[in-house]
Amino acid sequence: MPVSSYLLPSAMVWDAFELQERAYFPDGTEVRPIAEPPVLPKAPAGLRLRGVEKAFGDNRVLRGIDLDVPAGQFVAIVGKSGCGKSTLLRLLVGLDEPTGGEIDFIDDGGDRVAPDARIVFQEPRLLPWFSVADNVAVGLGDGVPKAFARREAELVLDEVQLSEKAREWPAKLSGGQRQRVALARALVSRPGLLALDEPLGALDALTRISMQQLLTRVWRELGFTAVLVTHDVTEAVHLADRVIVLDEGEVKLDLAVPRPHPRHHGDPELALLEGQLLAAILGES
């Protein structure tokens, strides 16, 4: 991850100060200058997994995962249904506790830091009774001043190209737009790690391509670590620096994707990697 990409969030912070003077929403709601500092850009958080296990009763879903993810990397985890990839993701963001092993968040130098992760699910899980902007503000947590929350929501909605929809109900948006709101909500607190659980699985093919471009751009601009779980190998090689194949709860293949971003569909080298991955997943030698 180039260091220069950290510049952007701080630029956005200065924007936030400049934006104070103008009317904020189409309905003329003014944004008053406030005392609280804006959310500061945070450094990406890497991961260190040692012997991570998860069992549901007798069913051992994860059987000792060792994995190092450097801060700022984009990792994709692929595998058949039931290989434990979603379970692993839920452990990473603290939704479930591992039954064995350790999961540590680490900084650039490999020192442990506080867990700092957000997750985007396949379904957007927006609150239908909140406007788009209020849904994004949920990502900031409780007790945040309203004007500040709105300003941050506006900034991150701009990032996912949905500024115009800030005052709409989620029901009025298309599937792709809702998923972008969910992404904005996950990113508004500037997490060090973003977990994506098949976030594009429910979208149509064209929307999915636009969303892949958007994801790559947002990742490069905000500089977080990304862990993407997907069953779509094409998507994995298109987005990630590195693809991990899980099989019956173990890492079967750990493949680097050494191609510069942004990538385009039809890159022959990506197709080659894709074939390699598919072979590993389907169990061919």
């Binding site: 190209q161 115009e164 298309s174 792709g176 064209l206 636009s210 471009q213």
Partner: peptide, 14 residues
């Protein structure tokens, strides 16, 4: 990032 060759509905809208 808005590409002309993919006229998505949301791009149009924005």
């Amino acid at each position: 990032t808005l590409t002309e060759d993919k006229p998505q509905d949301w791009q149009q809208a924005s």
